[in-house]
Structures are given as structure tokens and as C-alpha cells.
Design a protein around this nucleic acid. Structure first.
Lengths: 192, 192
DNA sequence: CGATTCTTTGAAAACAGTCAATCTGTGTGG
DNA sequence: CCACACAGATTGACTGTTTTCAAAGAATCG
């Protein structure tokens, strides 16, 4: 499974064989069955996690015991709780596999060491952060601007590959609308 | 006005005098009168901007010509459009002074050079990014979880100093609710 | 299949938005 | 100093959207 990560990296940046070996030497693989947790609320998150295969969701439970999905991570994407990772405080989130998954983990000190010794990796990691930033900003934009229907349309046009891989009610949860409302705004979109 | 920025930096990280001089040498100050723009939609944003004095807001206009506030930046905070900065594409945002302000600007190549030559500054910049990240995540959390009243209460408890410095309808715009709704949810919070 | 999960639908209630009018406070110019 | 204009806040009545609850269909999976 390291080959998946290797392929991902080489597509984006140039790395020498020794560098790749160095990365591999600190990588571990965690296999998750569907519905298994990578992280549970209350635990401290200590890794950088790359999804080699499968699909993860990050969600939290509000004080009315309702689930809200914070993030999706299909293969070739990163997951984890950056907040807990930097603060080293217990996480508010659960990360659960929605499909059988294989996750590549690099713990925090090892990852920092990699970034220090491989500048091009460090730049890449920062670039990812920047991009994630823009995605979050767009999500806020949509949240404060759009109606339920517009939110849904925006989601499926932006993440078509995610949309057809997960149950609808999880899209609703991600968008902050009820599953029933989502069901209702879905059909008018087909007719004019 | 560089002294404000200098004070801010020295409070957070250790910098030598030559390093500070290097930073000062690439810094420029822009004074804005109330209602003046630092950035207008359609222009490319090319700086890192630190608010030495005053107060900025970043907003965009949706296709129904409604304003939505993306961000506030009081003194000792950063502003700008990271999206346009990295993509070098025209910005969707307007940044406007809500009070007479003084902004310290460092253009992109200079800033990158500073980060390269002053590692501790680079680390600090990344730390800011991480924190900003968490703030945005909390905002998304609130957006998808809370009612109008809860959004408002969360805002004033989290940003009390901002709340009493700007008109209410701007808080409403930031939260994605109407000014009238905000006015209505305000009073029940005092009773009971 | 039988059980579970997911989606749709209906009806009612809660919530939030819109429009228009009024009220308030502030600052400006006469 | 007053009158006025202006921006902001509030209120009421109404409309529209979204949620909730309950039930019934559909799809999926062991």
C-alpha cells in the first residue's frame, strides 16, 4: 500500500529514492473494516493520515446527540484532526471508515522530521494546506449564501465522485440540512 | 507604524535586530480612511497584510447583489485574500476599512524571501495558518449545527471585542442570517 | 428472504426571510 | 442651537423555507 502513497507523491513532487525510503521507513499502514473507527472523540490524534484506499468521514455529535459531518476523505486524500494534532488535546471528532479502507499513518514527530529534511515535501504540505483553506472558505461561502437547494447543487457539481458513493443523508449532514429537505430539493432540480 | 508590527512579532517569536531590519526594509504602510478599499473585486491580491491600526472587513457580493462578510480583521490581525494570492487570479472579495486604518504590507516575493531566510518566522506563519484553520472549522461547525440564535450567542461569546465595534447587521451578514432575525434573537437572550 | 438502512412523502409546526414602517441616535450644516 | 438627513435597529404582518415526526416505499446485505 505504500506504492499508492508513493505514486501520489511522485505525481506532485520530485523525490529521490533515498527520500522515498526515508518516508517509507516511518510509514505504517492501518487497515479498517467498514464502520471501524480511525479516531474516536476524546482521544488525541497524533498522526498525518493518507487514505490509500477506501473512504473516511469525520463527524462530531452535537449537544442534541445529532451527528454532523465535518469532512469526507476518499483515497488519495488526507484525513485526521489537525486541531487535536497541533493542540495535543482530546479530539471532538470521530473518524470512521465508510468502506473497507487502508490508511497510511506517519506520526507527528516523524512527519515533522521528514518536512525538515525534505524541503520539497515541506513546500508540498504547505501547498495542500493552502488548498484546503480555499475549500473551507468556499464551504463557508456556501453556508452563509445559499439555500438548501443551492447548497446541494453546489455540492454535487463540486464533488460528483463523492456524491454517488455515500448515502444522501450524509450529504445532508455535511451541508447542515435535514435528510428530508435534501430529498425534497433533489427532484425539482431535474425538471426545469 | 512598523513599531506595532515589531511589537507583535517580538511578543511571539525571537528575532534579531538585523532580521527586524530586513523585515522593515520590505514593509510598506498603507493608510486607509473609513470606507476606503484595500482590495476590490476583480483585482489580484499580491500582499501579506497586517492591520496595525483600525478595522477591516472582507466581503463578497452574491448573484442577488447581497453582501456577505467573509472576515473581520481588527488591529494585530492579518487580512488579505489568500486564494487570490496563491492563484494570482482576480479576487472575488472586497476588503474595506470600517475605521480609519493603517495597514502594513509585504508583497508576496519579499514575504517568501523573508520566510526562507528567517526559519522562525516561517514556523510562526505556519502556526498562524493552523490557528486560522481551526477558526474556520469552528465557523463551519456553527453554520451546520446552530440556529440563528445559537450562532449569534456563539459569536458574541467568542468575539466580544468585535461585536461592540461594528454595526449589528454586519454580524448578521457574517453569520449568514438577516439583520431582522438577528435583532429578534437578541432580546430573548437577556430574559430567562 | 428477513432485517436493516436509506429514501421518499405528507402534514403540521417552527424558523427565518422579506417588506414596509417606525424609532433611535449621531452628526452636519444652516 | 435647531432642523434635518442618515445609518442603524426594531417591530409587525406576511411569506416562504426548513424542520420535525410519522409512516410508507425502496434498496441493500447478510
Amino acid at each position: 500500500m505504500f506504492t499508492v502513497f508513493k505514486g501520489y507523491l511522485l505525481e506532485k513532487i520530485n523525490l529521490t529514492d533515498p527520500e522515498l525510503e526515508q518516508i517509507e521507513s516511518v510509514s505504517t499502514i492501518k487497515k479498517l473494516r467498514k464502520r471501524q473507527f480511525l479516531l474516536q472523540e476524546g482521544d488525541v490524534w497524533r498522526y498525518n493520515a493518507f487514505v490509500c484506499k477506501g473512504f473516511l468521514r469525520t463527524y462530531f455529535i452535537d449537544n442534541k446527540s445529532q451527528e454532523h459531518i465535518m469532512n469526507f476523505a476518499p483515497e488519495n486524500h488526507w484525513s485526521g484532526d489537525r486541531e487535536s494534532l497541533t493542540s495535543e488535546l482530546p479530539s471532538k471528532y470521530n473518524i470512521e471508515a465508510l468502506e473497507d479502507s487502508e490508511i497510511l499513518l506517519i506520526n507527528k514527530p516523524d512527519f515533522e522530521m521528514l518536512c525538515k529534511t525534505i524541503p520539497v515535501l515541506n513546500d508540498f504540505v504547505n501547498a495542500i494546506l493552502q488548498r484546503r483553506f480555499v475549500v473551507m472558505q468556499e464551504r463557508i461561502h456556501n453556508n452563509i449564501t445559499y439555500s438548501a437547494e443551492e447548497k446541494y447543487n453546489s455540492f454535487i457539481s463540486k464533488f460528483p465522485s463523492i456524491a454517488n458513493r455515500i448515502p444522501q443523508h450524509m450529504i445532508a449532514s455535511y451541508l447542515g440540512i435535514s435528510a428530508e429537505t435534501l430529498s425534497r430539493v433533489r427532484k425539482p432540480s431535474s425538471k426545469k
